[in-house]
């Protein structure tokens, strides 16, 4: 395992409410630079909410109330007005791949173009690099200008990863990225994530603890909006400290 030197994100006392419903309660954790952090937990445990806070997608939900502090380098992430810039630095991939109604190339270029990159040469390089990093290049190299919606689900999900990578993000958030994919496509996405780890900090929310045990450096267990346990993946799965963690992974594995 890589020993990180600094933290990509440092989260202190983060709480989120929707009306009078608490979705996250007093979460504090540091996400190391370059690590692949897995997050497991049953549905409604707050995993998605946690990710949406990290790139300010939570701003699109009008009744969400966020408290706490998140530091990204020198940036006070929850206070900044530069929401678009936060979202470029912290990319997000959703459970259902959503290719934009553009060509394959258009999807990958979308982010860079919106942030002002116009030079065709630079864009071409970005497209190729990002698709290669997402492990999709060989499959689409010859049809970059055909509609992205014609790709299979697994390919679209890797396209979404490429699209996010084209912005050269520091952090990549993935919310159950394989829940709609078949085992083969899942394996390809996992390979992609493993290859990316180190260069990009990855937070992978998964409803499948197996997946976390396969790919994550550290794993966090969320339950009812609380962070129950965070440890090296191997330790968490073999010797969970909290009995709720144990119950969850036994229930899932048994």
């Amino acid at each position: 395992m890589v020993m990180p030197t600094t933290d990509a994100l440092s989260i202190q006392n983060l709480s989120v409410n929707f009306g009078n419903k608490t979705a996250l309660r007093d979460i504090s954790l540091d996400i190391h630079k370059g690590e692949l952090l897995g997050i497991i937990g049953p549905t409604t445990s707050g995993k998605t909410t946690f990710l949406t806070v990290l790139n300010r997608m939570i701003d699109t939900l009008p009744d969400a109330k966020v408290r706490g502090r998140i530091r990204m380098g020198d940036l006070n992430l929850l206070a900044t007005q530069q929401v678009q810039s936060v979202r470029r630095r912290v990319g997000m991939i959703f459970a259902l791949p959503v290719a934009l109604p553009l060509t394959i190339r258009g999807n990958v270029e979308y982010g860079p173009r919106r942030s002002g990159v116009r030079d065709p040469g630079i864009l071409d390089v970005l497209v190729e690099d990002s698709l290669k990093a997402a492990g999709l290049w060989e499959e689409v190299e010859t049809r970059l200008d055909s509609p992205a919606l014609k790709l299979s689900g697994g390919q679209q999900q890797r396209l979404c990863i490429a699209r996010a990578l084209a912005l050269k993000p520091e952090v990549l958030l993935l919310d159950e990225p394989c829940s709609g994919l078949d085992p083969l496509s899942t394996a390809r996405v996992e390979d992609t994530l493993i290859a990316l780890r180190g260069d990009v900090t990855i937070v992978l929310v998964t409803n499948n603890p197996y997946q976390a045990s396969r790919v994550a450096d550290r794993t966090a267990f969320f339950l009812g909006g609380e962070l129950v346990e965070l440890n090296d993946t191997k330790a968490l799965f073999t010797l969970p400290k909290d009995e709720r963690t144990q119950a969850y992974i036994e229930g899932k594995f048994g």
Partner: peptide
Amino acid sequence: PDTLRHGAYALGAT
């Protein structure tokens, strides 16, 4: 679908 809007927002689009 909203997923498309969110997809674009998540890429830093205004």
